[in-house]
Design a protein around this nucleic acid. Structure first.
Lengths: 207, 207
DNA sequence: GAATCTATATATAAACG
DNA sequence: TCGTTTATATATAGATT
């Protein structure tokens, strides 16, 4: 879409690669934005130049949220194809708990006759440890994500209840004004405090 | 870029929004791919339809890698503004970003003459990767913990405010009873709902 | 190198089957 | 709801400043 048709392959000339990068990057981010607006979709784009500079777009506040969604999604897919996990699972420990594995390792490392351990044994050990580590890490992350989700839920519930209470107060206030035209209490300064609370931005940039 | 110029705002007609989503999503992913090839850049795109279906593109194998890159980058920026970590930082990369490191590794692995890489080189490479991994992992965990902390704070604030509002309501109720002996509203069923909220157990067992 | 200017390739909105 | 077609809007390659 220019004076000439270009083949889609790495542009060798450094200078024009840089120019094209700048132009197309801008275009890509623009289109991402348009898609998110037109179709009410969550869109995130991350671009790293080959010299490591970062450019990104995200339709929600943080890229993180979308990545979280992505991970949840992937998790869900994993679960739906549960049979796959079974085989994988049995691989890393032939019914050996992580605790047992650790003990085995400790025992082996305490052994003075280190020479007795063949390289093959060590490779195997490394594999086992690696897999155990992955498991631990994955559960940790899973738990953290779950707890963040749950905290968000809670926050939402509390916010809603809060709003509800405020409405009740407003209603009461009105009723009082209607019934006896006097005002014993002034609630007008309550609203701002709660707004601050509800409007706090979620600044989660992890994962 | 069609028969008519379209305003960039949410398409209200569900059906044509779906059609546009499909077309533009395809276009976006195509452009992302082209950019990554033409300009030798790492590009990732994630799109969630408003009904939660996932579409993505990633120039490297996994989206996760790019996200990690993203976070390392964000971390690096943070660190550059705080001198504290300077020494540690310069250790693992002599002014090399994680992105650059990954590319270096990829290039080296693509090299047909693998024999040229001495074991020492590989050990060094492994060290570098290991350190980079630690960095990424540590920032991830750190950020997650921070966000959980912040969510808990928020929860506390909301709960307190909630209690406060309830008190206000109780006071008002009392005043009304005192002033004119009648009760227009019944607030007694408000408390239980909020108690459920506040009493939810925090079930975070990780770390 | 960055901004601007065309000519042209592409993407896509609406129509159609 | 799909794919295909077509007219048009946009993106952008190459040139120029």
């Amino acid at each position: 879409m220019g004076r000439k048709k270009v083949e889609i392959k790495r542009i060798e000339d450094k200078s024009s690669r840089q120019v094209t990068f700048s132009k197309r990057r801008k275009g890509l981010l623009k289109k991402a934005k348009e898609l998110s607006i037109l179709c009410d979709a969550d869109v995130a784009v991350v671009v790293f130049s080959n010299r490591g500079r970062l450019y990104d777009f995200s339709s929600t506040n943080s890229l993180t949220e979308i990545v979280q969604q992505y991970h949840s999604h992937v998790e869900a897919e994993k679960e739906s194809s549960a049979e796959v996990l079974d085989t994988e699972h049995s691989k890393y420990s032939s019914f050996m708990t992580v605790g047992e594995l650790l003990q085995t390792v400790e025992r082996q490392l305490e052994e003075p006759a280190v020479d007795d351990l063949s390289v093959t044994d060590l490779v195997h050990l490394e594999d086992q440890l690696q897999t155990a580590l992955m498991q631990a890490r994955s559960s940790k992350t899973h738990l953290m994500i779950e707890s963040i989700k749950s905290l968000r839920e809670k926050e939402k519930l509390l916010s809603e209840e809060n709003k509800h209470l405020e409405n009740q107060i407003a209603t009461t206030k009105n009723e009082r004004e209607v019934t006896n035209g006097t005002m014993a209490l002034d609630f007008t300064n309550l609203a701002p405090a709660s707004m601050n609370c509800r409007q706090q931005k979620a600044t989660l940039n992890f994962l």
